[in-house]
Nucleic acid binder design. Structure first.
Lengths: 230, 230
DNA sequence: GGAATAGTGTCTATTAGACAGTATCCA
DNA sequence: TGGATACTGTCTAATAGACACTATTCC
């Protein structure tokens, strides 16, 4: 069935179609970047960028659809997604009624190049162009959610390489929280959470090497502590 | 269009239709109760109960639809709803593919009788019958969300009458957290949050009267404190 | 005065947050 | 040895949590 015909029927049915959109973040050059794909849907959305996403197929859950669309548009595998929010204002898609189940995905900074393809681009969230649909809004909500999550969980694990140093970890928190953190308090607090453990290796640089760590668990863990330290 | 015909077309389109379901909680007789409506959808769901809900119309958001369906099925007005999660497993509705944007609503214990009508019933969440669709699962998720929310926000405001005593407030926390709380610590902590304020009245009973309080704000406030006190 | 529930204060242990100097590597 | 960044510990103030008695009303 042609898309045109499809939309006509859907419109007649006066129903809301559900689709998914995925906000993929990675930290590049010390700023949060989001992965965008080209969108060209005349007459309203021409030569624009937007979030990767699309329809949900007959035999998949929205979660599956999010993973699938991400894999197709960003050429990646094994990225886990978390449901963010469902956006449903009637005019969010000017072409026809559609509802977006938005997902949040995180990519370690040593992996972001993998998911690049000819069309997709990584853009700093501080320098977003005008995006298709309500995708700018979705990204804003995603940033807030991410900021909220890091203070009571180990979500940052998905933004860091498998092995990382404590200064690198702290830097991620500083970027997301947009404020400097005290090095001693940060280390003290983070080590008491037992979320990370030493590996028997150091990161060699042009100065004193730093101890490498890894996250104890690959699953999302909830921690009681709140990172309010200055 | 007849429902049968509608479902046939939808099935041919192989698309996912979005609907809403609303979990309404109230505390009745010291236990969490949920509001259920009768559901009769042969052949899979006959003479059962389930959450109030239904389709999203052309010109309304999911939030609007949730409020509307709640008003229709439960005969009430002015209840605010919060998006809970979107459920989308392909077989969650055995009749046809449908996705549920679930909402959470709370009703003060002095108001729950208002939303009763000939068909709806209030059932303790400890004694739920088998429900239609995946509604049992949705309710479980809703309870967890509610439990999580009360420790860092003033959500309980929607479970209490406009004026209430501190022992009543504490009771709500004890029911939701399923453990006793120390009276002195509870009062001390809650009063330092400034979430509530005294009113110039007391609740008269057959023993010593209790000071009445009211929530300072009708909006959802986030508090840093965590109610972990024993 | 007895029953029933409201209301109150202190002490201790832990945690949060401020703060500055030493250690280790490389060039 | 100088540059650069990793790493470490203490003090203070605030908070969490344990704990028991007095106050007020009604009957």
């Amino acid at each position: 069935m042609k898309e045109e015909e499809f939309r006509k029927i859907v419109k007649e049915l006066r129903i809301a179609i559900a689709a998914v959109d995925v906000v993929v973040f990675s930290i590049i050059n010390n700023t949060i970047h989001v992965f965008l794909t080209p969108i060209h849907r005349p007459p309203h959305y021409m030569n624009m960028f937007g979030l990767p996403g699309g329809v949900i197929l007959e035999n998949e859950s929205a979660d599956d659809a999010a993973v699938r669309h991400l894999a197709e548009k960003a050429n990646t595998k094994g990225v886990s997604v978390d449901q963010l929010y469902t956006f449903s204002y009637p005019d969010r898609d000017k072409r026809s009624r559609s509802i977006s189940i938005a997902y949040l995905a995180l990519l370690p900074s040593d992996k972001y190049k993998n998911i690049q393809n000819d069309n997709g681009v990584w853009v700093s969230v501080d320098k977003l162009p005008t995006l298709a649909y309500d995708h700018s809004h979705i990204i804003k909500v995603a940033i807030e959610r991410l900021r909220g999550k890091i203070v009571y969980s180990n979500v940052v694990k998905d933004l860091l390489p498998a092995q990382f140093t404590l200064p690198e970890l702290q830097r991620v928190y500083e970027i997301l929280l947009e404020r400097p953190l005290d090095k001693r308090n940060f280390r003290k607090k983070f080590l008491t959470t037992k979320l990370i453990k030493k590996v028997s290796d150091v990161k060699k640089t042009s100065h004193r090497p730093a101890q490498l760590y890894t996250f104890s668990s690959k699953k999302l863990e909830i921690i009681p502590e709140v990172w309010a330290a200055l």
